Simulated scan of single mutants.
Amino acid sequence: MEPRWLTEEEDRAWRAFRRLLTAVPARTARDLAADSGLSAADYEVLSTLSEKTGHRWSLKDLAAKMEWSRSRLSHHTARMQQRGLVEREPDPADARGCILHLTTGGLRVLKAAVPAHVASVRARVLDHLTPDELATLERISTRVADLPG
């Protein structure tokens, strides 16, 4: 079957989107590391854990929410645990799993990182969009991100 090739307009949009997906995360990650010493992955784990009541989440469910493999999250949080940012405890519902818990130190590091990270997100993206563009970005992002995996 012949591929359904991109039109010139689709190709331009796709290439611009790919550039966006490369540039924005790389730039905000550099800003985050310079400002707080956290990697983008560290920040994602800490901020996602902070959203949950009690700052606790099973590794299995957190990995699913973040769209990471359990192995990747396990290895990454092991390094974070060595830095005192998270703790692990047995998961009573899953003998092979664990519960990840944001430590007081991890929450303190996250809270210290947030103001500069928000400033970076604003400077790199949000401040360059009109309210209508922002609403369109939200609609498009939600629709595409919510497609079945």
Score class of each variant (00 low, 15 high):
residue 101 H to N: 03
residue 98 C to T: 10
residue 129 L to A: 08
residue 106 G to H: 01
residue 111 K to S: 13
residue 114 V to K: 12
residue 44 E to W: 13
residue 89 E to M: 07
residue 31 D to Y: 05
residue 142 T to G: 03
residue 72 R to G: 10
residue 1 M to N: 09
residue 145 A to Q: 15
residue 71 S to G: 13
residue 86 V to I: 05
residue 96 R to I: 03
residue 33 A to K: 05
residue 45 V to N: 08
residue 48 T to C: 04
residue 130 T to G: 06
residue 69 S to G: 07
residue 51 E to F: 03
residue 117 H to I: 01
residue 77 T to G: 06
residue 35 D to A: 15
residue 147 L to Y: 03
residue 57 W to T: 04
residue 75 H to R: 13
residue 121 V to T: 13
residue 13 A to S: 11
residue 59 L to R: 13
residue 36 S to M: 03
residue 41 A to C: 00
residue 101 H to Y: 01
residue 24 V to H: 14
residue 100 L to S: 06
residue 47 S to N: 05
residue 70 R to Y: 06
residue 25 P to L: 03
residue 71 S to R: 07
residue 25 P to A: 02
residue 90 P to K: 11
residue 120 S to W: 08
residue 147 L to E: 13
residue 134 L to N: 03
residue 34 A to R: 14
residue 55 H to W: 15
residue 99 I to Y: 01
residue 146 D to S: 15
residue 127 D to N: 04
residue 125 V to N: 01
residue 28 T to R: 08
residue 103 T to C: 05
residue 65 K to T: 08
residue 7 T to I: 09
residue 91 D to R: 00
residue 94 D to W: 01
residue 86 V to C: 01
residue 109 V to P: 00
residue 44 E to Q: 14
residue 81 Q to N: 06
residue 1 M to H: 10
residue 78 A to H: 11
residue 132 D to G: 04
residue 26 A to V: 09
residue 19 R to L: 09
residue 113 A to S: 10
residue 26 A to H: 10
residue 52 K to L: 11
residue 94 D to N: 12
residue 31 D to E: 14
residue 47 S to G: 02
residue 32 L to M: 05
residue 23 A to D: 15
residue 128 H to S: 12
residue 41 A to W: 06
residue 132 D to N: 04
residue 21 L to D: 03
residue 22 T to D: 07
residue 62 L to E: 08
residue 120 S to P: 03
residue 52 K to Q: 14
residue 99 I to C: 08
residue 36 S to Q: 07
residue 148 P to Y: 00
residue 26 A to S: 13
residue 104 T to W: 04
residue 103 T to L: 08
residue 63 A to I: 00
residue 122 R to F: 04
residue 43 Y to T: 03
residue 110 L to A: 08
residue 16 A to C: 05
residue 82 Q to K: 15
residue 53 T to V: 09
residue 78 A to W: 13
residue 54 G to W: 15
residue 40 A to S: 12
residue 102 L to V: 05
residue 142 T to K: 13
residue 121 V to R: 15
residue 79 R to N: 02
residue 67 E to F: 05
residue 47 S to D: 07
residue 64 A to N: 02
residue 25 P to D: 03
residue 11 D to I: 01
residue 143 R to Q: 13
residue 21 L to R: 11
residue 127 D to W: 11
residue 124 R to L: 10
residue 119 A to V: 05
residue 80 M to S: 05
residue 3 P to L: 14
residue 126 L to F: 14
residue 90 P to N: 07
residue 13 A to H: 07
residue 89 E to G: 10
residue 26 A to R: 14
residue 1 M to C: 08
residue 3 P to I: 12
residue 133 E to W: 00
residue 15 R to G: 13
residue 132 D to Q: 10
residue 10 E to V: 00
residue 7 T to K: 10
residue 1 M to L: 06
residue 6 L to M: 10
residue 48 T to G: 05
residue 68 W to M: 06
residue 79 R to I: 01
residue 137 L to T: 07
residue 119 A to G: 06
residue 133 E to Q: 12
residue 100 L to A: 09
residue 63 A to Q: 02
residue 69 S to A: 01
